[in-house]
Amino acid sequence: MTIPRIPKVSIDLLVNNEMRNVVVRPSDTLLRVLREVLGLTGAKPGCENGDCGSCTVLIDGWPMKSCIMLAVEAVNQQITTIEGLKDTPIQNAFLEQWAFQCGYCTPGFIMNCHALVNIHPDANDKVIQEWLESNICRCTGYEEIEAAVKSVLSKQRSDGRYSH
């Protein structure tokens, strides 16, 4: 039996808790669909090669480089973009610590940090580095980003949100 050619597909994506129907090329990356179809331009193209992390979004709570994921792969998964974060501790920490300059890598960094403090509330320096070396910031010297993440981790610990 011949399998018919399907140039475009209609899929439902759960983005920031909203179900969104989109028509995409199966070869479209999630990054391009978020930006160009859904208008969620917070995720940024920096290399489209999986190297720089500026397009990082969360898939079921885990950071994912949306440039190396097809939109069709994200069906039935929870997608969270920077537009889905409101007044979170990590966003406030980025503000307080001046953890950005040009702001271009910031959404990707924030998404990665947000996942990190949720998944590894007990993260030590080694784990923080392992996670954050996935992203490139070209403006700061990383000092302020380090301060931002650590401030959220220590606040969480002192608030006793986690029993570690």
Partner: peptide, 12 residues
């Protein structure tokens, strides 16, 4: 495996 690519890429 923990040394390949980077942490975010390893999620994929």
């Amino acid at each position: 495996c923990s040394e390949a690519a980077d942490q975010t890429a390893r999620n994929k």
